[in-house]
Write a protein that binds this DNA or RNA. Structure first.
Lengths: 158, 158
DNA sequence: AAGTTTCGTTAGCTAAGCTAAATAAATGGA
DNA sequence: TCCATTTATTTAGCTTAGCTAACGAAACTT
């Protein structure tokens, strides 16, 4: 299942087909997230909560609908997530002054703090594994991580 | 905590810290799977069903417990998934001859066929996006995809 | 033979996704 | 202006997928 990585310099690296790359990115993503999810509970934040909260923390306050779109989720799903997090005092909601239909959502100080803790817990082990890789692999991963994000956001994907 | 890395070679793209790589792999995986999931329904197979089925198709018949472990899921979860797929005639169960407690699970012909269709649908667009990338990016992705899998399976991850 | 462990299932809970429909506000055309 | 439509969010109710606890049956161990 896992192919050996050849040295980059000498022989031509065996190039996988686009299909094989797609398959590996797919199953790699599934497996990675399953492993990481196992530590979510410790933080007191679920994955989707953490994800939405991080959009707020890094992107600032925004209307619920925009947050839903950013998370590629339907409005009712985000509405419920926000309601739960509001109960935990991790986010606030307030009516938009200019449009009374709209709700501005923002992270609280407590929310920001918890997010950072949760991220540390969730990503700490992954970071540790990566930082043990040789520099050359880290360089490749660093390009690849950016590409993965780009692909995931690509309009052509659907 | 973003550290500045002194550039060793101006020709190389800026290298991310291990933490930044971890963050991008994490959110990239989340976003990618969310996008891909949207086409699952078309195939008549959910993500976890497809994933378990693919273990059976590519790994052959195995006891339910082993399949659960392979999918990193508890036994009751796998038991339910198998029950549903059995109802769809995608898998069969039979008692193990040597251990009457154990249940051997296997994909049916119909299951194998549906899996392949589902994979085509689910991965097709991803494949298309990748194959449009320039060759150098594909080469990097091809190494990176393998690394992602390796990392996801790494014992050090927890 | 009795107690313990292992494999799987059932029951029941939670989280997160969805659609359809309700509510409320903004917009726009006659 | 007023009525209709569109837009933003919420509520209600469904589905899937994860979990733990508790159970029965079979297999080990002593």
């Amino acid at each position: 299942m896992v192919k050996k990585i050849p040295a980059r310099d000498k022989a031509l690296p065996p190039k996988l087909t686009a299909r094989e790359i797609a398959e590996q990115l797919h199953s790699g993503s599934i497996r990675l997230l399953r492993r990481l999810r196992k530590t979510d509970d410790v933080a007191g934040l679920t994955g989707p909560q953490a994800s939405a909260l991080s959009v707020l923390v890094f992107g600032g306050a925004m209307p619920l609908g925009k947050l839903a779109a950013a998370e590629q989720v339907q409005a009712p799903t985000m509405s419920r997530l926000i309601k739960e997090m509001e109960g935990l005092q991790l986010v606030t909601r307030r009516k938009d002054r200019d449009d009374a239909r709209s709700v501005q959502v923002d992270a609280t100080k407590k929310g920001r703090h918890l997010l950072m803790q949760a991220r540390d817990r969730r990503l700490g082990r992954l970071e540790a594994v990566i930082s043990k890789s040789p520099p050359e692999r880290q360089r490749i991963l660093s390009e690849a991580a950016a590409m993965l994000l780009e692909i995931a956001e690509s309009k052509e994907l659907g």
